[in-house]
Amino acid sequence: MATTGHTVKAFDSDLGQIRGLVSEMGGRAEAAIAASIEALARLDLDTAARIVEEDRKIDELEAEVERQVIRLIALRAPMADDLRDAVAALKISGVIERIGDYAKNIAKRVPLLAELRNSEPMAILPAMARSVSDMVRGALDAYAARDAKAAVLVQESDRHVDDFYNSLFRTLLTYMMENPTSITQSAHLLFIAKNLERIGDHATNIAEMVYFAATGDQLVDRPRGPDPYAAMAERT
């Protein structure tokens, strides 16, 4: 904020405080994603339980961001880029809260997956999670740096995550056909993959808000590839 300091210094510190809270939420959500996948890979029930517990802090932070943004808008009536900043913080905190929920959801499934330890799908999930984490990190870094260009890159990498999801979907279908006894567990894995895919979409949403806050323009939706579901319907 050094270059665009406001006459009322309290405004800068209010906005800085809100951005700090959003970033803190983001850090917690990132950690939750990484920890949930690690818990899954090692079937670490303690870590899984801790993630579920810590999601509360993300929820509390969201409420705090909301309170402070409303207060800022009410007291200071921000305009132009300041208003965009405030609105973006509000929306991004909502999105991060969802990301935290998805990570929690993954953690909740860990105790149900004891027997799938060495299956092929379990080998793909960590790679997909890494790709998703990279997107979330990219989006939050772009937020911290107000970097519209970096936000565009995040949007572009969503395609990789979609590829992962489609690849996993097929692998899991095959796996279920070959191992009918493990259908319950495979279904859980499918939900985990879906959760990761949704986190990727939410990272894109954050990137869109960052772009909007930085430029005032809407980031045009990336061109969708051929509909994966249509292709699947043909084959299955």
Partner: peptide, 12 residues
């Protein structure tokens, strides 16, 4: 520089 420390170092 001049940012909130939580924006600079984003780690719980």
């Amino acid at each position: 520089v001049d940012d909130d420390i939580r924006l600079a170092i984003r780690h719980p």
